[in-house]
Design a protein around this nucleic acid. Structure first.
Lengths: 119, 119
DNA sequence: ATATGAACAACGTGTTCATTG
DNA sequence: CAATGAACACGTTGTTCATAT
């Protein structure tokens, strides 16, 4: 099958992947920094992602061929390696964003329709 | 725990419970009918809940003390029983709706903020 | 075939553990 | 201790099976 569809709201993983792409676009991304930043961004909405989900989102984007890893030595430190990300295939990233917009619109529509039907 | 919070979007189950309450308010609810109706309501949003989720939502509302079951003989049929629902505690139902409104608002806010930050 | 429900399986996500510097 | 990642456990949801009319 594959026709009928039954999807509810956008998944957390997909949502985070979108933000990861954005952080790479802005050339500032390594995992822990992303975590802090996103927690700040979302704190007004009572959402605080955990570190595992961030890493899973990142790893999935690598598996998707969208990002690639690069290890660098952390500023000022002796031998502390951190992992930063760059685009492996930016076209893929743009496509992903395009698709996600559809899904976000759909999800917002679903929730809004509930709001107006129920309240 | 308890304080920090980490919740992403509203869960499907909770979302359906809200609709079940509404259908009971309008005095027309048995499970399969609810399923057909909701599928119609949501088809523009590509969401088609399955029957198990509907029943689970209903059963949970019973466990919560919000609804109660009543078996009746289906119209025009010989001995075909169906299950309809009535309020066990309408105050609880109103409270649930009130809480859900907060969660829906929060969820819509989160998605909208993503839309405006990313696109 | 319709209605209800339970059992089972798959998936998504949170929590804990392990490793490295 | 900070950063990354894997393992494990649990909660949620989808699919299948069972029973009754």
């Amino acid at each position: 099958m594959g026709r009928g569809e039954s999807k509810f709201l956008v998944k957390q993983r997909a949502f985070l992947k979108l933000y990861m792409i954005r952080l790479v676009e802005e050339n500032r991304l390594y995992g822990m920094q992303a975590l802090d930043e996103l927690r700040q961004t979302f704190q007004n909405f009572g959402y605080s992602p955990n570190h595992s989900e961030i890493y899973r989102a990142l790893h999935e984007l690598i598996d998707d061929g969208v990002l690639k890893r690069k290890k660098v030595i952390q500023e000022g430190a002796k031998y502390k390696e951190i992992v930063i990300y760059q685009f492996q295939d930016y076209e893929q990233a743009k496509l992903y964003k395009k698709q996600m917009k559809v899904d976000l619109d759909r999800s917002i529509g679903l929730l809004k329709s509930a709001m107006s039907e129920i309240y």
